[in-house]
Simulated assay, not measured.
Amino acid sequence: MNFDKELDAKGLNCPLPILRCKKSLADMTTGQVLKIVATDPGAIKDFEAFAKQTGNELLSSAQAGAEFTFFMKKK
């Protein structure tokens, strides 16, 4: 998937991946896509909830071993 910016949130635990995501999205324009890589097992539920609360679109989430990859489109 194409993306405009990447956020490395590996090794960070809740709520830091969400806070860093929020900060990164603030610097982006509408329609741009942020790729987030995290290792926190709670990140899946956290990013789903974050998308619902903020209106940003969670395009996809995937797990490869202990890493989770998310693509979020800025509203």
Rank of each mutant, 00 (worst) to 15 (best):
K23T: 15
D40C: 01
M28L: 12
D4Q: 07
T30D: 15
I44W: 14
A66K: 09
S60H: 15
L19Y: 09
N56W: 09
D4G: 07
G11W: 04
A64S: 15
N13D: 14
F3D: 01
V33Y: 09
K22E: 13
C14T: 12
A38I: 02
C21D: 02
G55S: 13
L7F: 01
E48N: 14
S24L: 05
L19M: 12
K35W: 01
L25H: 03
D46W: 10
K52W: 13
K74H: 07
E57H: 15
G65P: 08
I44L: 10
V33F: 07
G65Q: 09
T29W: 12
A64V: 10
V33K: 10
D46L: 11
Q32G: 04
C14R: 05
F47K: 01
G42Y: 05
F50D: 00
P17R: 05
N13S: 11
L25K: 03
A49L: 11
P17E: 01
F50W: 15
R20Q: 13
P17T: 01
V37C: 08
K22F: 10
F70H: 00
E57Q: 14
P17D: 03
L12I: 03
D4M: 04
T30Y: 15
V33D: 04
I18M: 12
T54I: 07
L7G: 00
F71Q: 08
C14E: 08
C14M: 06
E57R: 15
S60Q: 11
F3A: 02
L7E: 00
Q63L: 08
E6C: 10
T54K: 12
N2Y: 13
M72G: 04
K5A: 04
F71C: 03
L34F: 06
L59Q: 11
A66L: 06
